[in-house]
């Protein structure tokens, strides 16, 4: 799979989710923040994007903590996303 295919697959999985909130947040993150991430953070984001919305949402709103420190960095960035 080439880079375009990889990003398009990720874009689909970020913007066709169960909840509108997550479509908006992950879509915005993918466009603006994802290209700036370090490789380890990018991998952590792909793991987060594979989670179901009701697993991921508590991490973003802070009601659950991330066990993995790199994942916690990415969640902190997700929490700071402002949808335009």
């Amino acid at each position: 799979m080439d880079e375009r295919e990889r990003i398009n697959r990720l874009r689909w999985r970020c913007t066709r989710r169960a909840m509108l909130e997550m479509d908006l947040l992950l879509g915005e993150f993918l466009e603006r923040i994802f290209p700036t991430l370090a490789p380890a953070q990018a991998e952590a984001f792909i793991v987060l994007a594979d989670m179901e919305d009701l697993e991921l949402w508590p991490l973003i709103n802070g009601s659950r903590e991330c066990a993995d420190p790199v994942q916690a960095e990415v969640v902190a960035l997700l929490r700071d996303v402002r949808v335009k």
Partner: peptide
């Protein structure tokens, strides 16, 4: 179009 448990019924 998505994995079944990502359907909008979740909302």
């Amino acid at each position: 179009k998505v994995f079944p448990t990502r359907s909008h019924t979740v909302a």
